[in-house]
Design a protein around this nucleic acid. Structure first.
Length: 558
DNA sequence: AGAAACTTCCCACACTCTAT
DNA sequence: ATAGAGTGTGGGAAGTTTCT
């Protein structure tokens, strides 16, 4: 909580300092002065329904937040010049606002159009530009260096081997890395898809080389237009002395700092620079809203082509971008879709199942937040609030404390609470339709597929410590029988006129009537209620004993 | 030729849907 | 019930494009 407040305070302070690149360009893509995102909202939400109206409200508020935060790169396909309030296209390292802007960049307040970075390798420098984040680019450099070493079989002195990569390899060798083995390990980890381990290993390398290799940002650009020319300038005139004075370079040169360096001659660059990549511009803000609408990647792609007229976008590019910018589909849904669902959940008259159906497409992202939520593995604000009340926990309790109680609360499956599912199991409600039956199945009632039903059943069975549905069913039905007998042996039935009436059970017929009216046995006589009770539910207890043990009336003395 | 960023291809895995 | 087709994921490596 404190950490969060600190970040917010930092943001406030910085904006007072005047770093606020408000370029007058809308964050939403416009075509003929119309913001296309509204067309999409109309397309995917039924605005005549309550849920559609409320979803629109929540999305509008999300849009306002995104507009205010300006956290992502602007969509600038026409390469318009973007300037801030002080008329700058970029903030160089010696600008008074640079350090403030850098702090904001590090906490992800603004996504710039690109940046110029320098890498200090034991007092030798490399300068480059990138439209990505610096961490990503730096990691690429390290892997490239290792790959180059591996491919040339360690011959880093061969002509043409990049000076920069050679320097990186030398540092790694000096601190004891076997580079062939290191590269092999990284390749193996990715081949085995052990990405977490791979990331950890790479971070470890980055940590170990920190005293010798340090990347730093030296200029922040609002757009990518001037990146090339600025890179050329810096490679030719690397301002060594001022960079040191600004604290960006810490290497000790015994106080002999040349004012400027030519990095091609006295550094690690091999070209004069100025080459920009072919960064594919995408309307990230609109994409965020598409995620909030619950669209899967292929659907987004279709809309980008149809509505936004972005012709060449490939699905892999889109997904790479979502991963790079939003940190993956899971996080993206958590950031953009979850708040919409939380708003809907707080509105009376909207059921969780309705919410589920409205955003069902989002489920196609099997590793997304919505998918987990559909199986009750993710929680909403209201769930946590319920826990506070139910278990009398302080609202300032830590997450670890709250977590202990999560398992004890009711889970929802496709928005339907677990107790409802259990009721369906007890009453033998048909889960999916079969030919020749005119009973409406759960799958039909909930508008979900058979396999989804199967998976839900599997999960509920497992959560309740059972191995099969029938095992769980017996357990639940036994509890039900005990409950009925304990509380007066009265059950609700629907009589011939379709009216709900109560009937009292007797010792002689309780098993018959329970099987017929509570368990809804289709052919209840053939099913043999006596055997069912005695063998399946109360393993070995005879009917007499069941009645006598659990009923609170007319107890026989045995 | 070199740099940056994009595309293609790959894999393992998970789920849905349809047909049998 | 189950097999198979289809869809989707992340995220790497290798190859390609685009630019200077």
């Amino acid at each position: 909580m404190n950490e969060r407040n600190n970040i917010i305070n930092k943001e406030k302070k910085a904006s007072i300092n005047g770093i606020n690149p408000d370029q007058g360009i809308s964050v939403w893509f416009k075509s003929e002065k119309k913001e296309l995102i509204h067309e999409l909202i109309k397309k995917y939400l039924n605005l005549d329904s309550l849920i559609g109206k409320e979803a629109k409200k929540a999305i509008s508020s999300l849009m306002k937040q995104l507009e205010q935060k300006k956290q992502y790169r602007l969509y600038n396909p026409e390469e318009k010049i973007i300037i801030d309030q002080k008329g700058r296209e970029y903030i160089p390292f010696n600008d008074p606002d640079f350090h403030g802007a850098l702090k904001l960049y590090n906490i992800g307040k603004y996504e710039y159009g690109g940046l110029i970075y320098a890498v200090d390798v034991q007092g030798l420098f490399y300068c480059g530009l990138t439209e990505k984040r610096i961490e990503k680019r730096f990691e690429e450099h390290i892997i490239n260096a290792l790959r180059g070493y591996y491919k040339s079989n360690g011959d880093i002195n061969q002509p043409g081997y990049h000076k920069f990569y050679e320097a990186i390899c030398n540092v790694l060798l000096n601190i004891g890395y076997d580079l062939i083995e290191t590269y092999k390990k990284i390749s193996t980890l990715s081949a085995l898809q052990r990405y977490n381990e791979r990331r950890k290993f790479l971070h470890q390398i980055e940590h170990n080389i920190k005293p010798y290799i340090r990347p730093c940002i030296i200029e922040l650009h609002y757009s990518s237009i001037k990146l090339g020319s600025r890179e050329i300038y810096y490679i030719k005139n690397f301002p060594l002395k001022s960079l040191f004075e600004q604290g960006l370079i810490i290497k000790d040169f015994n106080n002999e700092y040349p004012e400027y360096l030519d990095l091609r001659k006295k550094g690690l660059n091999t070209t004069s620079g100025g080459q920009t990549g072919t960064n594919f511009p995408l309307p990230l803000y609109d994409i965020a809203i598409m995620i909030a609408l619950g669209l899967s990647a292929p659907k987004m792609l279709k809309d980008l082509k149809e509505f936004y007229n972005i012709k060449d976008v490939k699905i892999r590019t889109l997904r790479h971008k979502i991963t790079e910018i939003f940190g993956g589909s899971y996080k993206a849904q958590e950031m953009f879709l979850k708040p919409i669902i939380e708003h809907l959940d707080s509105i009376e008259g909207i059921s969780r199942h309705e919410i589920y159906l409205t955003f069902k497409d989002a489920e196609l992202l099997n590793d997304g937040w919505f998918y987990e939520w559909s199986y009750g593995e993710e929680y909403l604000k209201t769930d946590i609030e319920k826990i506070y009340k139910l278990f009398n926990i302080d609202t300032r309790a830590s997450w670890e404390e709250i977590m202990q109680y999560l398992d004890k609360t009711e889970k929802n499956f496709v928005g339907i609470p677990e107790y409802q599912w259990k009721e369906w199991f007890i009453s033998n409600k048909m889960l999916r339709s079969y030919s020749g039956s005119n009973q409406k199945s759960i799958a039909e009632i909930l508008s979900i597929g058979k396999t989804k039903i199967q998976t839900i059943v599997k999960r509920i069975v497992k959560n309740n410590g059972c191995n099969s549905l029938s095992e769980l069913k017996y357990k639940l039905q036994r509890q039900k029988v005990i409950e009925i007998l304990k509380f007066g042996a009265i059950i609700d039935i629907i009589d011939e006129n379709g009216r709900l009436t109560k009937i009292e059970l007797e010792k002689e017929d309780f098993h018959l009537l329970i099987c017929k009216h509570v368990f809804n046995f289709d052919n209840w006589k053939a099913a043999n209620p006596k055997n069912y009770m005695v063998n399946n539910l109360f393993s070995g207890m005879n009917l007499n004993k069941i009645w006598n043990t659990f009923s609170n009336k007319f107890q026989d003395l045995e």
